[in-house]
Design a protein around this nucleic acid. Structure first.
Lengths: 253, 253
DNA sequence: TAGTGGTCTAGACCACTGA
DNA sequence: CAGTGGTCTAGACCACTAG
């Protein structure tokens, strides 16, 4: 063979671009700093804008960048650790938990939820909507499904919906002293309503945490919580959490 | 106003497309079935291929589809629940855990890892590579960092690398009876080596689980496990897990 | 070798933000 | 209003798989 076989595994351009940008982020940019706009960056690297965007998308997915339409692309702060499995939050509505009740209504839940709760598919279920914020930023939106049979003593007088109703349902649920059974974490994409609450576009990547709560031997409630995947690191066990990050992080001055 | 304001919030095409495809997946396709190719699908819906691909990418992210270059796009089975926080796997290398040692070497770890371990940044650390499979499919690749000081009695005679060495390190680590301290879950994208082991392309979305193990009052080891985000649902607490899925799932005949 | 998904281009227009 | 990121198009070629 007279041909030297360099570049036998040609790396995709966007992949190489991502590496270069990632290193530049570590060494030349501070948290919060604004990057040049996509058209300029693409020109600077000699690629099409779509290719540049592919690299930016990955970096955003990894929590390194934050992009906002009409504004620009900024260097993201390190992900914030969010405790999701601590005793503090042993049950929904317990004192000092990080959730804020938003709304509530009574309706038949999605079929899969009814199946897990063990209720009939057309049996109405209290659906409490809550939101969670850290450092002033929204990080999660939750739907908490509570079968009417779990809270039989709920006053029928109150309004059937609204934040007040949400608090009433939580108060009744709390009296059962429900215990966290198990949780599951999976990747999803934000529905339109969740996206709005999380200040993201629909389809944004989210971590969906599904938790079952039991009182006695029956399922008292089911929580489906949607966390922003770009900004959150979910911690289980001792809160505080493991500190692993990509590289140097400097603050904007 | 004389103008009716229908369609005041025009949904992006790819979003609508995703919804349509998702419903078709529930009602007209079976698990494992092959979809028409991207060019045909795009033509059928009257959109550019790039737009169609945007919808497919989201569905793949949500674990509804599986795409393989040179083969085609198939309907994915429901995500498999993978236990990551049970007592069975109390410590690495314990009897009956789901991990298979692959390799091992001794080198200075990434700076962030050294910081968490509390070792000097240039101090060599045993790095055990393990892989985890379920139902014959690879689901996770792990790097387990074990400071040399954690396993002082490790025979120096063995080969410094290879699967045998990996097992030796795990054996020594096990003698410390390390306890799981805390775990963190976050979204990432697969590095080239992990991607290969997971049978995915580099950059594929993964769930990164970081776990610290302690023996006595010091950190004995640090595990960084990379799970396929498209196929896995990570379960904590009671194994088995919550059964939440999108809709009807039929088996291919 | 034929067919698949993966990458890339050079445009265009739209939706949103903030001055 | 100008400038940003978000969506969309109609092509092209490449890398990979399987018959």
């Amino acid at each position: 063979m007279g041909t030297t076989q360099l570049e036998s595994v040609p790396e995709p351009k966007y992949w190489h671009l991502k590496t270069v940008l990632s290193e530049a982020l570590d060494s030349e940019f501070s948290v919060g700093e604004i990057l040049p706009n996509e058209r300029d960056l693409a020109a600077r690297f000699g690629v099409a804008r779509a290719t540049l965007r592919q690299a930016l998308e990955q970096l955003e997915l990894e929590g390194r960048l934050q992009r906002r339409r009409g504004v620009g692309t900024t260097v993201a702060p390190p992900r914030v650790g969010v405790a999701v499995g601590t005793e503090q939050h042993a049950w929904p509505g317990a004192a000092g938990d990080a959730w804020q009740p938003v709304d509530c209504d009574l309706a038949a839940p999605p079929a899969a939820v009814a199946d897990t709760l063990g209720t009939d598919r057309d049996e109405p279920v209290h659906t409490v909507r809550r939101s969670r914020t850290t450092h002033g930023q929204p990080v999660a939106a939750e739907l908490l499904y509570v079968p009417a049979s779990s809270v039989p003593d709920l006053p029928a007088i109150d309004a059937p919906a609204g934040p007040a109703r949400a608090r009433a349902v939580l108060r009744e649920l709390q009296r059962l002293e429900p215990a966290r059974q198990e949780s599951a974490v999976e990747l999803g994409s934000a529905r339109a309503d969740d996206a709005k609450e999380l200040d993201r576009l629909p389809g944004a990547p989210v971590l969906v945490v599904t938790t079952r709560y039991a009182a006695g031997d029956r399922t008292a409630a089911l929580s489906v919580a949607t966390y922003r995947a770009d900004t959150c690191r979910l911690t289980f066990g001792d809160s505080g959490g493991v500190e692993i990050h990509h590289g140097p992080h400097r603050r904007a001055s």
